[in-house]
Design a protein around this nucleic acid. Structure first.
Lengths: 359, 359
DNA sequence: ATTGGCACTCACGAACTTAGAGTGCCAGTG
DNA sequence: CACTGGCACTCTAAGTTCGTGAGTGCCAAT
């Protein structure tokens, strides 16, 4: 029903509306684009597009704006993923050029993405499920100068009543570090802790997270029996650390951009900002988006209604860190520059995958 | 010049204006508060207050609103730090009741503070300058299954051309962990790395950050000479980690509240949000605020102009983590509930200090 | 020092007008 | 049959006018 020219008309309506934020009329279309037909003809095409609910009129006898469905067609069929400008390309190089720890790289990535797209950018931490345990470290946190001098004889293990705080550090081969402070039920000294560390390392180093969780659950303590309660607590918490999927965490940047585009949100950005701070919602949304490796998934307007984001669009792409999949993307008003933003999301995702090692 | 009653008038003007967001007139003052004098008398007092630039009229013959200077006098002399409600008190308990690692505790604190005050909350990471090195750990990051089997003989040290990635982890006694990925110029195996680790630990464990930086700078490598270049790189980067003051980091929550109070910002929250995302600015501001231990410092309106925050007020308080000082606070429009917010900031700072150990 | 009275000011909202962009439809044309 | 020019109609956005009421400043009286 909708002719080829009709789709062209839809394309320019989307482009002009995104650029100007003003309803697009038949006249302005023939003025700005060389269609070679008259305004009346464009009007006929527009009537057809309206019948298909691809465009709508905010008020009777005003120009037309794209509907969610219109954006959908645009994204699926009409958007040319224009390659990044050389300036943008260079921005990626200089921004992500040098390595650093995981936190730092992701923080830089999210800032970069927000600058490239002028939208809110989001980067999810990679899952650790496929990462392997490299090392487990325990560190006494109580003041060392409070301990008796080295030479003094003292019990190796527990002194009931006086607890000890230790730091438990889990190091994986994907460059991530999980740390946790543990309040032990009784006193544990350096030697005892070293014993525990040695035995636990033997038990879990080299296993991936899933296997390590199993190994910890079934861990049998064969050392000094007085230490049993402390070891039980330690293995339990270490188990939590192993299970603590980093994927439940994400970093954000560019919230100011939401305010900049405030008029696109029917007046009130407040609920959107709230939903964004409530990371749980976004993580669910990320989880439900298609998980194609390098293509860009787009969720438009009302498609996000279950997440309280009915007026926003979300573009995401997957990236990999040592074989672990995660997502990154941008979020903004449905009226956004899809072509540019999809290209930027894809470019950053690819670059990040390369930087973190595809494995 | 300004009588006692005059100050009372200032107080109710601040209170009423904060509550209603409307210029306060002499009539409404006598209506709502039992001053025992007539509106004309209040008008005389208000004329005096205006002469002192403590209040101002948005338009001729409308009510008056407090100036920055008026808020200043209110905060310094008139605000009663009303104790927290029992509900608020309980919120602190349940929110911060259980321990966790530093990141987690600070994340919870900042959310709590934003909920208690309905403003943007900020928590700065504690400085590490007084923390002591507990342990230094290096972990090989290259795929272990790519290495030859254990028994195989191979050179202990360098294989030029094939670099090795290692993770360097610095653990301090304040519960913080600094990590960094290092790209070594040549191949280093497990045994060599163990040697480096052992010698470096002897050199720096127990030193505070300043001392450790010195020790690293003057570190003389007495092990296998082939390792010298690798060790030089490692000590250099470890030196950076030691110097990397965590205090250059802060967490934020409640940005949505800025939007909620948008009308207080002369229409545009955008520059404010931008300044907030640019953490550097806030860290400078934090740095310049008085560092009294437990009192609350307040910086009002134009006092923040150098930071691009001329229409906001910032309330901060210091807290300590193992003897390391840092700040936390809230940021919002000058029209805010100072009494409640100062009390909340102080309460959370105190609670956090207790939780993290005063040392 | 405080008060009641009074003239004056000014922002705000309601009601009204106007301009202009845009539409829908129809009869005409190649 | 696809396209076009013309025309009547619609509706928003912006500007104008005007009345209302809260609030002020000042002054003479207590």
């Amino acid at each position: 029903m909708v002719s080829d020219r009709g789709l062209d008309v839809l394309r320019v309506i989307v482009q002009d509306y995104v650029a100007s934020r003003e309803p697009v009329g038949s006249k302005s279309i023939v003025d700005r684009h060389a269609f070679g037909v008259s305004a009346a003809t464009i009007r006929n095409d527009m009537a057809l597009l309206e019948e298909e609910e691809l465009i709508a009129a905010p008020h009777t006898s005003s120009g037309r704006i794209p509907t969610d469905k219109g954006y959908r067609v645009f994204v699926d069929h009409l958007a040319d993923l224009r390659p990044l400008s050389s300036a943008q390309r260079q921005a990626i190089e200089t921004f992500l050029g040098h390595a650093g720890d995981l936190d730092e790289v992701l923080a830089r990535s999210v800032r970069l993405l927000s600058q490239l797209t002028h939208q809110v950018a989001l980067v999810q931490y990679p899952s650790l499920s496929r990462a392997r345990v490299r090392h487990v470290e325990f560190v006494l946190l109580s003041d060392p100068r409070g301990d008796p001098p080295r030479g003094t004889a003292r019990p190796v293990a527990l002194q009931p009543g006086t607890g000890t705080r230790i730091l438990s550090v889990l190091i994986t081969d994907s460059g991530g570090v999980e740390q946790r402070v543990i309040e032990l039920p009784a006193h544990v000294d350096d030697a005892a802790l070293g014993d525990i560390r040695a035995r636990l390392n033997v038990a879990v180093v080299g296993l991936n997270m899933t296997e390590a969780a199993g190994a910890l659950a079934g861990f049998a303590w064969l050392g000094s029996p007085e230490l049993t309660p402390a070891v039980q607590l330690i293995t339990a918490i270490l188990g939590e650390q192993v299970a603590a999927n980093r994927q439940d965490k994400l970093v954000m940047a560019g919230a100011a951009n939401l305010v900049r585009t405030e008029e696109d949100f029917n007046g009130s950005v407040y609920p959107v900002l709230e939903a964004i701070e409530e990371q749980v919602v976004l993580l669910r949304l990320f989880g439900e988006m298609a998980t194609d490796q390098h293509g860009v998934s787009v969720s438009i307007g009302r498609e996000n209604a279950p997440f309280g984001l009915a007026e926003t669009s979300v573009l995401t792409s997957g990236y990999t860190s040592h074989g672990n999949l995660a997502r990154l993307g941008v979020l903004g008003p449905t009226r956004m520059d899809y072509s540019n933003n999809m290209a930027a999301v894809r470019a950053v995702a690819r670059y990040l995958s390369r930087l973190l090692g595809e494995n």
